[in-house]
């Protein structure tokens, strides 16, 4: 897993709605999470919670109480969900995994890598974020820069990364589509607009 720990823990500039889903304690969950059928049920529960969040909201999925998670479950619950989020099915709503560095992550990582996707992971709410899954180096660098600020405009991000605005906007768009950052469109004088990026965890 790639760590974003090079950056400070941040306070998001605007308070966003957040909910926590404890997989081990939830009715659809448990300590032993195996098979695609079980993963499907958890994914459906997560999907309902995501749909119930306001725009910009963050759903924290806590898997720390799960003892065993096989690949099939991980792919069905997290891989497919991440894929659908990237496809825009849940709009501007985000998912953050709460999990420690342990073997259980291997199956989530394998599923996300196979799908060329990534998720933000924290060891506990409020802790420094990291990435689980597959993200190209240039996007990791961009993500680390964004998470190193409370909030950053595309222009400032471009300057920090030594990119032109279009290239930087492309990276920001990709990260937002992957659900790894929050992207806001703001009006910029005179009569223009600019994007602002923020971390989600």
């Amino acid at each position: 897993m790639i760590s974003l720990n090079t950056v400070r823990t941040l306070q998001v500039t605007e308070e966003r709605a957040r909910r926590v889903y404890d997989v081990a304690a939830a009715g659809d969950g448990g300590k032993l999470m195996v098979t695609r059928g079980a993963g499907r049920r958890v994914r459906e529960a997560l999907g309902s919670l995501l749909e119930g969040l306001p725009r910009g909201g963050v759903l924290y999925v806590d898997t720390r109480g799960v003892e065993l998670m096989d690949y099939s479950f991980a792919d069905e619950a997290f891989g497919i969900l991440a894929s659908r989020m990237t496809g825009g099915e849940y709009g501007d709503r985000h998912l953050v995994l709460i999990e420690a560095e342990r073997d259980l992550l291997e199956n989530i990582e394998a599923s996300l890598r196979q799908r060329s996707l990534a998720m933000i992971r924290v060891e506990a709410e409020g802790e420094s974020p990291g990435i689980v899954g597959d993200l190209p180096d240039h996007l990791v660098e961009t993500l680390q820069t964004i998470y190193g600020t409370d909030s950053i405009t595309n222009a400032d991000l471009a300057k920090k990364l030594g990119l032109n605005h279009t290239a930087c906007n492309n990276r920001g768009t990709r990260l937002a589509k992957l659900g790894l950052i929050h992207r806001r469109k703001e009006t910029a004088a005179p009569g223009g607009r600019q994007y602002t990026y923020e971390g989600i965890a």
């Binding site: 032993l32 195996v34 098979t35 695609r36 065993l68 096989d70 073997d103 259980l104």
Partner: peptide, 15 residues
Amino acid sequence: RERVAICSTLSEVCA
């Protein structure tokens, strides 16, 4: 860790 390895193996192959 050993339990996870054994049980993951079993569940995947059974599935």
